[in-house]
Simulated scan of single mutants.
Amino acid sequence: MSGRATEIGLIRLLAVLAVVLALGFIGASGSQAAGGSLRVCADPDNMPFSNEEGEGFENKLAELIAEKLDTELDYVWFSEATGYVPNTMGQDACDLVMGYAQGTGLIDDTNPYYYTSYVLLYREDDPKLAGVDRLSDPRLKNKRIGLVARTPPASILAMHGLVANAKPFEIFAGESQSKAAADMVAEIAAGKLDAGLLWGPVGGYYARRSLVPLNVVPLVKESSGPSTIYGITMGVRPNDPQWKHKINKVIAENQGDINLILQSYDVPLMDPEGTLIELGAAER
């Protein structure tokens, strides 16, 4: 929303807003990776995006980029839960923010390296919701639906009069978005909720690890309200077109491998128009 709005959706957008206000982005930099290595901003505990053990998909993407640039990989760890992202300018800056929502204009960004959306989750064995693929479906009336407060699907639920029975999941200070996602998925699996709304990378990752099979339905058919589909880029330092071009070139030349990494973490991938990219399509 990790990937950053974030879920990176709105959450990562708010994080970037906070850093711009807090740090002011003052400084200068060159077009080479700092200190002869690729310095990447990443959260040490925010699966499936990243963690300190290098198990997230953003860790794997950072490793791929460092390999293609023939350089060492170093991390600048930060917690998204604090609302801060390290500076991309100055002597101690990092070179990349791995997940950054396209078009915020707050720092520079690369071309999108994937598109994804918010998703609707419900149990595969629930015949009352079978085939539901949009929030305007009347079968969602009076259903108990989990949502993350202040995200785009919450606004769409309100437009369709579905908030009376909805359960908001707040992301509190010091907690990652992943905890709220895991809690929501557990309640859907247990039957405490009929359905849930999550940012695609998080929803797909935790749903596929549920002991109770869940449907993961990308919200790509919404005709009103805020967008549910976002292009995710990498944040780069501004006023450094050579560095941005270099990263864009790595993305373009390795898009197939990037897609395979994302799909291995159950990230729902799509093109900018919302058409799903099938598993393994990157190889064709």
Rank of each mutant, 00 (worst) to 15 (best):
K221Q: 13
L61A: 02
I188Q: 05
A81K: 09
M1D: 10
G90S: 13
G174M: 04
D133M: 05
V185K: 13
T233Q: 03
V40A: 05
L197R: 05
L260R: 14
A42W: 03
V119E: 09
Q242D: 05
M98H: 03
K128G: 14
Y115F: 15
S155D: 08
G90Y: 12
Q177D: 05
S210T: 01
R4Y: 03
R123W: 07
A93L: 14
N142Y: 02
G235K: 08
G204A: 04
A189M: 12
G27E: 00
K141R: 12
A181K: 15
M1E: 09
Y84I: 12
D45L: 03
E55H: 05
C41E: 01
G27R: 01
K141Q: 09
I188L: 06
D70K: 15
G225S: 08
R123G: 08
A282I: 11
L214V: 01
K143V: 06
Y113F: 11
P201R: 01
A173E: 15
G35M: 12
V216K: 04
D126P: 02
D125H: 04
E273W: 05
G9A: 11
E222G: 02
P272R: 14
E63W: 05
I145E: 10
P238H: 10
H245D: 14
C94H: 06
I107L: 09
A15W: 08
D137P: 01
V20T: 08
V40L: 10
T104N: 07
K68R: 15
T233S: 10
Q177G: 10
D137N: 02
S50Y: 03
L260K: 13
Q32R: 11
S223I: 06
A186S: 14
D74G: 00
D95W: 01
R208V: 00
V119G: 06
N239D: 13
G231N: 10
E170Q: 12
P153Q: 12
E80L: 04
L106N: 10
L69T: 02
A66T: 05
N59H: 13
N254K: 06
Q242C: 00
G196N: 12
P152S: 09
S155I: 06
P218H: 03
V19N: 06
R150I: 03
T233P: 10
L157Y: 07
K60V: 01
V212M: 13
L262C: 12
A28W: 08
P238W: 11
N165Q: 11
T275Y: 11
R150P: 00
R12K: 15
E52Y: 07
R237K: 08
Y118T: 04
L197I: 08
N87W: 02
S117M: 07
N59V: 08
P201S: 11
F169H: 15
T116S: 15
G174S: 02
